[in-house]
């Protein structure tokens, strides 16, 4: 419980404005796994975002008349291959010089929601845990007997 208390502060930043009103919950309701779009999460440092072509491959047919999907398809068609500029929701300040890797956390069985909150039920992705709080990381690392060597993350 203490862990949640430390992580959840009232001063978490509001969700940043996104170019498209993307809803995680709708995608989860349609039984699309997190890893379908965030492909790197099991093997790479960064979970990654899908290419616009990947979104378009479904949305040519799926919900093609939804206003946000229409907006997306227009950008995709007229964007000259420029990627969508999604804004980061979970930001660790560069001054911390932390190199977070997703893959070891997923391998250790850490649920996505532990850090990202229950994104699956969010219409707008929002920070629930203060991921920039090192004490919060360390509490879990100590509990799980993971490395608490500074250079594991700061290098």
């Amino acid at each position: 419980m203490a862990l949640v208390m430390v992580g959840c502060s009232d001063e978490l930043p509001p969700p940043p404005p996104q170019p498209i009103a993307f809803s995680h919950s709708v995608h989860i309701e349609n039984e699309i796994e997190c890893t379908r779009c965030h492909e790197g999460v099991e093997t790479q440092a960064q979970a990654g975002l899908p290419a616009m072509a990947a979104c378009a491959s479904c949305h040519r047919r799926q919900a093609a008349d939804h206003p946000e999907v229409v907006k997306f398809m227009e950008q995709y068609a007229n964007g000259n291959g420029e990627p969508m500029v999604w804004r980061k929701v979970h930001v660790i300040p560069t001054s911390a010089m932390v190199h977070f890797k997703h893959s070891p956390h997923v391998r250790a069985g850490v649920d996505c929601a532990t850090c990202h909150g229950d994104v699956g039920s969010m219409t707008v992705a929002q920070q629930v845990v203060d991921v920039a709080n090192m004490g919060w990381c360390l509490d879990c690392h100590r509990e799980q007997d993971a490395s608490i060597d500074c250079m594991t993350c700061h290098h």
Partner: peptide, 15 residues
């Protein structure tokens, strides 16, 4: 700066 368990002389810039 300190000795890591794997024998590296670590340098933590943030500190």
């Amino acid at each position: 700066t300190y000795r890591t368990p794997e024998g590296l002389n670590a340098m933590v810039y943030a500190r």
